[in-house]
């Protein structure tokens, strides 16, 4: 196998992007899985895609549009879900379909060549620029840093928002903070992974980690690790078989999930209960 390709700048950029994106998406995924909000994430990633297309159409930075629209969708869904005015799944479904409709509307209105739009749909990790990597790096450091600093408040909010509120933790603020970070991560990874595929890289590594541990700290670490592993293995397959990297990354993350689900100790609860949980604290 000729590995000289890994000496090129574009490939090194891709390896660094998948490393950073894997950590950020894997970390965000823990929130998405444990707070039972996968559809909110799907909706936000499609909103980001629509926002990026709006930027392309009107001639401003697509990532700015992506960030604005994903936050707008979170700002609409969050309070609806929080107040219980609507079944959250219904409101998310309505906004999801609106975002998908807007995305294709903007694509249709865009004059000329649509390759830029398709790149945002499927992602193109091999054309990542230094500024893309810097943005991804900043978002990753912020996401990991905030989880580290506010771990106990995040843990309480994830476990049960009402209990967190009742002991004096500002859980609503943390819920919106989590939605904000999800929007930022989706935006920063959009160019590499693509609007249609980004959500799998958020959900699959965390869902795999969820199968394997009863410790939240370990779940964060495993999920970030699986995110990076999905990126790197996907990149390798993309190079070996000359297929789109976004797709190989997503398929790899799904395979990791399946392996984790098959070997999950949580499937054998009774057998597990005989052994104590490893000490930590």
């Amino acid at each position: 196998m000729d590995l000289s390709i890994f000496g090129y700048q574009f490939m090194q950029n891709a390896i660094l992007s998948t490393f950073l994106g894997g950590i950020a998406c894997g970390t965000i995924g823990v929130f998405v899985v444990l707070m039972h909000m996968p559809f909110i994430g799907v909706c936000m990633s499609h909103a980001a895609f629509a926002g990026a297309l709006l930027g392309l159409w009107l001639g401003f930075n697509p990532l700015l549009g992506a960030f604005a629209l994903s936050l707008l969708s979170a700002a609409i869904i969050g309070p609806l879900a929080d107040r219980g005015e609507l079944n959250p799944e219904t409101s998310v479904g309505v906004i999801f379909s609106l975002m998908l409709g807007l995305a294709f509307l903007f694509m249709g209105l865009m004059p000329g060549n649509k390759s830029g739009a398709l790149e945002l749909l499927w992602g193109s990790i091999l054309t990542n620029t230094r500024s893309d990597i810097i943005l991804l790096g900043i978002v990753t450091v912020v996401v990991v840093g905030l989880v580290f600093i506010f771990y106990k408040e995040i843990q309480a909010t994830i476990f049960n928002r009402n209990i967190a509120l009742s002991v004096g933790v500002p859980a609503t603020l943390f819920l919106y903070g989590i939605l904000f970070l999800t929007g930022a991560t989706i935006t920063a990874s959009l160019r590499s992974i693509g609007g249609l595929l980004i959500f799998s890289l958020i959900l699959n590594p965390a869902a795999a980690a969820y199968q394997l541990t009863y410790s939240m700290k370990r779940m964060f670490l495993l999920s970030a690790g699986f995110g990076v592993l999905s990126g790197w293995i996907g990149l390798l397959f993309s190079y070996l078989f000359n297929i789109p990297s976004g797709a190989t990354i997503v398929v790899t993350s799904s395979v990791i999930f399946m392996i984790a689900a098959i070997f999950s100790p949580k499937r054998k609860v009774k057998g597990w209960q005989a052994k104590p949980l490893l000490k930590e604290g």
């Binding site: 444990l34 106990k152 843990q155 476990f159 209990i163 004096g168 933790v169």
Partner: peptide, 22 residues
């Protein structure tokens, strides 16, 4: 049943408000 949080950690949540941020 698969929530990754132990009994001891759940009880500690009771002290999180008192401890305050950071």
């Amino acid at each position: 049943p698969r929530m990754p949080i132990s009994v001891r950690e759940v009880v500690m949540i009771g002290r999180y408000g008192l401890l305050g941020l950071l």
